[in-house]
């Protein structure tokens, strides 16, 4: 499988604090990568740098071999919209939109006609166990259901990479397991790669690989073998 996303020699500093001190990382198609580490280790900075949200002070970020860290803000924004999907801990769904319109929003932003966008969005509800919840608003969904809607929204644009930042941080253990299982499996089925920040080893265990980050450096790299 070819490399989708790569970061080479990534450096990021916030004043005198070094968040990333020369990190190298590669993500292949259908690959799922968990980034773990203690608080302040630089794991979220690494995810945001790979996603083009933060511009690194040093090093390069490549998407399918093309450098993206030197793109302008508008191009980076378009890239995130078209090529990446995002799942956050909470609060990413617009409370006034029903679930199906929340999922359809990225497609509409790309110019897909609304009817078509909503139809495409609805296709994601059954596979994610959301059947019948299309018209519900985020406030009417449980935490797990809301995260599954967020996963649908991240995948509806058929991204190259899905970035998940503590996607289970606000969920109980059972829901958390269910959500991360869906996230990893559906992402893989879609042919997309997954980069996930988590502090939960059980959640990380669902990924193909785990990077441990400490003081801005990769302290260990563990690859799970597929049973």
């Amino acid at each position: 499988m070819s490399t989708v996303l790569a970061g080479h020699g990534l450096v990021k500093k916030y004043g005198s604090t070094t968040a990333l001190a020369g990190v190298d990382v590669e993500v292949r198609e259908r690959d799922s990568l968990a980034i773990m580490g203690p608080s302040g280790s630089g794991k979220s900075t690494l995810l945001h740098t790979l996603a083009g949200i933060i511009r690194p002070d040093g090093g390069r970020v490549l998407l399918r071999g093309a450098r993206i860290d030197d793109l302008g803000e508008n191009k980076l924004s378009a890239l995130r919209r078209k090529r990446f999907g995002f799942v956050f801990q909470f609060g990413q769904l617009l409370p006034e939109l029903p679930a199906e319109e929340n999922v359809a929003l990225p497609l509409m932003l790309e110019g897909t006609p609304r009817r078509q966008a909503v139809e495409r969005a609805r296709r994601w509800f059954a596979p994610l166990g959301l059947d019948g919840l299309e018209g519900r608003r985020p406030g009417q969904l449980s935490g797990g259901q809301a995260q599954r809607v967020a996963i649908a929204r991240a995948l509806v644009i058929e991204p190259d990479v899905v970035f998940a930042d503590e996607p289970t941080g606000a969920l109980d253990q059972n829901t958390s397991t269910e959500v991360v299982r869906l996230l990893t499996s559906v992402t893989r089925e879609q042919g997309a790669a997954l980069v996930m920040v988590t502090h939960d080893a059980d959640v990380a265990a669902h990924c193909d690989r785990v990077l441990q980050v400490r003081d801005g450096r990769i302290s260990s790299h563990h690859q799970y073998t597929v049973a």
């Binding site: 924004s77 890239l79 990446f84 995002f86």
Partner: peptide, 16 residues
């Protein structure tokens, strides 16, 4: 601000 921030972060143009 959180939902707007996350939408912008996901690539939603500010003008929208």
């Amino acid at each position: 601000r959180r939902v707007y921030g996350l939408l912008r972060l996901s690539g939603t143009p500010l003008r929208v």
